[in-house]
Design a protein around this nucleic acid. Structure first.
Lengths: 188, 188
DNA sequence: TCTTTATATGCAACTCGTTGCATAGCCAAG
DNA sequence: CTTGGCTATGCAACGAGTTGCATATAAAGA
């Protein structure tokens, strides 16, 4: 049920529509939680009928109507309660690692392209995170001093940066290993 | 559908029963893919009826009968095909990061205990991985030279080690941040 | 002796998440 | 002027994953 909580956090940071939430989940929140718009609309509806959120219809000219959601009392209480409960440390689901082990039963060199592609994606993400850090937290246009919310957003972003750096270094290790296997055992 | 592929890889490495697979998913395979026994039994049944796996009933004395699964031709072909298809780079789902951002709307210090607990879990995992690396790949009892399959298993394990080290360092950063906020702004 | 742990498999019900499709109007590019 | 993209919401169907329960035997420990 962590999507509910991610939505509560995002709407507390700033109220918005399902569509806007979906876009946030492609950016900042999406660094550590993903969701499609279908899922978001469904959960928003449930949360509203559970009394965690309030809706406000915003008729717009030359645009479809917008429903702006915001967190109300019970929603804030639900978040607070969740913060006090322990959660399971996350376990990773890494398709690429499955592929790498599976490559032992095929030609390992077929994965080189794939791993290079993943490396590029992570490299792009890292650049994106670093640009965001400079813009919001460490650059000259950033507010000083940062408030508690900004400090917490920054430490989460630093986690994303550390994750991407670690992943890129590991993918380089993977590439070196695949290439080594390719030369010593040409074709499986 | 990556559970199917993880099962194919694991059964190619060594045939086994659903129960045995479930235990492997708590260990080596489980470092990067998790599954409960329910899910494993269901998927094994489907894969067998799809002709990817063969079953062999092993009656045992003083134990319930065991069904040993192994990969047959079409299963190997399915894995090979998957290896040639591109997959989406994984996106993280990190509950703890949601909590950290949510802490801005409550007392950040309530998370200190929780983060310390997660740090301990990751520290234990790291120790476990390092022991496995020494046993299987870098210690005196390890085979030399390693074959391709072992090299690939090792590079995946190195990824797990790098992940845990990065996570521990980040959690230390998180703890320092939470403690700093706690002293400068006592209670929210 | 009674409880727990381990082996070994499975059903039923549920929630979570994805994919495809649908609607509807506006704007910009070709 | 038509195609595609952006805003904005949603249904229906499916597949993935979790939780609770059930069964059966045997060994080890309290």
């Amino acid at each position: 049920m962590a999507l509910e909580h991610a939505i509560l956090v995002s709407l507390l940071e700033k109220p918005g529509s399902g569509y806007e939430l979906a876009r946030r989940f492609e950016r900042s929140i999406g660094y550590f939680w993903t969701a499609t718009h279908q899922q978001i609309y469904r959960v928003l509806k449930r949360m509203e009928s559970d009394g965690l959120l309030a809706v406000r219809g915003l008729p717009q000219q030359s645009r479809p109507d917008k429903k702006e959601y915001s967190v109300v009392g019970p929603g804030r209480a639900a978040l607070s309660q969740w913060l006090h409960e322990p959660i399971e440390p996350e376990s990773v689901r890494h398709d690429l690692a499955v592929k790498i082990r599976g490559a032992a039963f095929d030609d390992p060199s077929v994965l080189i392209r794939e791993v290079e592609r993943h490396r590029q994606v992570h490299s792009d993400r890292l650049a994106h995170y670093l640009a965001g850090e400079l813009r919001d937290f460490t650059g000259p246009a950033a507010p000083t001093p940062l408030d508690a919310g900004q400090e917490l957003q920054h430490v989460v972003l630093r986690g994303g940066i550390a994750y991407e750096r670690m992943t890129i270094a590991w993918l380089d290790d993977v590439l070196a290993t695949l290439r080594r296997l390719g030369t010593s055992h040409p074709h499986a």
